[in-house]
Amino acid sequence: MPTKPAGTLYRGREGMWSWVGHRITGVVIFFFLLVHVLDTSLVRVSPEAYTAVIGAYKNPLMALGETGLVAAIVFHAFNGLRIIAVDFWKKGAKYQRQMLWAVLALWIVTILAFSIRHLSLALGGH
C-alpha cells in the first residue's frame, strides 16, 4: 500500500508550488511575447496602423491585464534568480524555502510600486 510520498526538495510544499508558478507564468509570458512582436511589427505596415492598435490597448481592462502580465514577469524573474541560486550557490538547496519567501516579499513590493504608478497613469486619464 503506497503511502503519501515524503516532502523532498521539489515535491510538495514551497519547492513544488514555486515550480508550478514558474511554469504557468513562463507559458503566459511566452504567448504574450509572440503577440507583442506581432503588434510591434505593425510599425512596418504604417504609422497609423501601429498607433491605432496600441491605442486600442489603452483602456482600463488592458491596464489590469498589463499589471497581471508584469506580475507574472516579475515572479518569473525573481523565482528564476532563486533557481539559479539553488543550482549554483553552495547553500542554495538548503535555503530554497527561505529564498522563496524572499522572492514573494520582493514580488509584492515590486508589484505594488508598479501598480500604483502604472494604474494611476493608465486610469488617471490624460
Binding site: 510591434t40 510599425v43 498607433t51 491605442g55 489603452k58 508598479f114 502604472h118 497613469l121 490624460h126
Partner: peptide, 22 residues
C-alpha cells in the same frame, strides 16, 4: 526590467507609446 521601466514608468508612461515613441 529596463524595457518596462523606460516604456511604462518614466514620464507619461503608457500614454507616450505610439509610432513616434518607437
Amino acid at each position: 526590467f529596463g524595457h518596462l521601466f523606460v516604456n511604462l514608468m518614466v514620464g507619461e508612461g503608457i500614454h507616450a507609446i505610439d509610432f513616434g515613441f518607437v
